[in-house]
């Protein structure tokens, strides 16, 4: 699923990465605990999270995630935006809660990380 489709399905605002909307996302992961993200997420997955602090971006960088979508209307801080730009990580925000965001993407065919082999 491309970023563009995700933006459409979740009604996202694109905070960082307007020029990378053709990026292909291979799986989804909804998580607020960064250790679990580090342990289970696959590269090229989309991270959906309600955790709005710089560690979300760091975790994405370390585990090679290209896209973070903040749920429930969380707006990233200037520092987070700067870090995401530097590390070339796209940031989206959606006003939907986690339940609805994961649900809609799953319904539209995005698979979970455990279903996808690198």
């Amino acid at each position: 699923m491309t970023l563009k489709e995700i933006v459409k399905i979740l009604g996202c605002q694109v905070v960082v990465g307007k020029e990378t909307l053709d990026t292909e996302v291979r799986a989804g992961c909804g998580c607020d605990l960064m250790s679990d993200v580090l342990a289970f997420i696959k590269p090229d997955a989309l991270l959906l999270t309600g955790l709005n602090n710089p560690q979300a971006v760091r975790t994405a960088e370390i585990s090679e995630i290209k896209v973070i979508c903040f749920v429930r209307g969380k707006q990233p801080s200037e520092a987070m935006i700067a870090l995401a730009r530097e590390k070339e990580i796209a940031i989206l925000t959606t006003s939907l809660p986690m339940f609805e965001a994961c649900g809609r993407l799953f319904k539209n065919g995005l698979i979970g990380c455990s279903e996808y082999d690198e």
Binding site: L33, M34, S35, A39, L51, N53, Q55
Partner: peptide, 10 residues
């Protein structure tokens, strides 16, 4: 802050 769930060392 999204940490401290006891998964770090594991």
């Amino acid at each position: 802050l999204g940490f401290g769930a006891g998964m770090g060392l594991a």
